[in-house]
């Protein structure tokens, strides 16, 4: 079912009333196709030429226009819908309608779990979330993740977290013997590591734009 909406002048006031309605009932307009009826508007009313853009910027999906006269900004939408039937005037809900959860959001954030060790020369690239490695990461091997990296073995190679830009990403490992670690583009190599941390379980994160490595537990 599509809505026919009839905006009235003055448009700024009408749009702010629409905003208030949408805020009260976010679920009501969600992904709802609308047809804009220009009958109550004069082409010279301020805001008429930008009306469709203003509606679309609010997330409404304009599928057709009616009574638009020769308004140029309405041209792309003109006469796209034929055979529509009138179902009467829709009643806006007085009670707030909760916005449904977006359907494409999975119940848990995606992560990649690796059961085999990552051997020298192997590169694991995962740009949708966290990587969990059950084995070790060898010297000359690397894991790149957009999220955090968790290694339940020795990290002897490279771990690059927040690879698409995420300063909150972290790296955890059971045994720290890394060649290089990086978060959000900041990196640190083995030469810079505190020798006292070698072989220990550590957490690596970004503090004040610097790599910070602290023992775990």
């Amino acid at each position: 079912m599509a809505f026919v909406i009839g905006p009235e002048a003055p448009l700024p006031l009408w749009l702010s009333a629409l905003d208030a309605q949408m805020q009260r009932s976010p679920g009501f307009f969600e992904a709802r196709p609308v047809i804009v009826d220009f009958a109550a508007l004069n082409p010279n009313d301020p805001g008429t030429d930008t009306l469709i853009a203003a509606l679309e910027s609010r997330g409404l999906s304009v599928i057709d226009v009616e009574n638009a006269g020769d308004l140029p900004s309405a041209d792309p939408w003109r006469r796209r819908l034929v055979g529509g039937r009138d179902t009467g005037v829709a009643k806006l809900p007085a009670e707030a309608v909760a916005a449904p959860k977006p359907a494409d959001e999975p119940s848990s954030p995606p992560s990649l779990i690796l059961d085999d060790p990552i051997r020298s020369g192997q590169s694991v690239l995962f740009l949708k979330g966290d990587v969990v490695a059950n084995g070790f990461v060898s010297s000359g091997a690397e894991i790149l993740a957009s999220g955090s990296i968790h290694i339940y073995g020795a990290l002897r190679g490279r771990a690059i977290a927040g690879a698409l830009g995420d300063a909150h990403a972290r790296i955890f490992c059971q045994k720290f013997e890394a060649e290089l670690v990086s978060i959000d583009g900041y990196y640190s190599t083995a030469d810079d590591f505190d020798p006292a941390l070698r072989g220990r379980a550590v957490q690596i994160r970004l503090l004040n734009d610097a790599i910070s490595i602290t023992p775990l537990g």
Partner: peptide, 13 residues
Amino acid sequence: VRDSDRIIGMLDS
């Protein structure tokens, strides 16, 4: 040892 590690990875893949 590192070269052997690389070869083991290739054996597995």
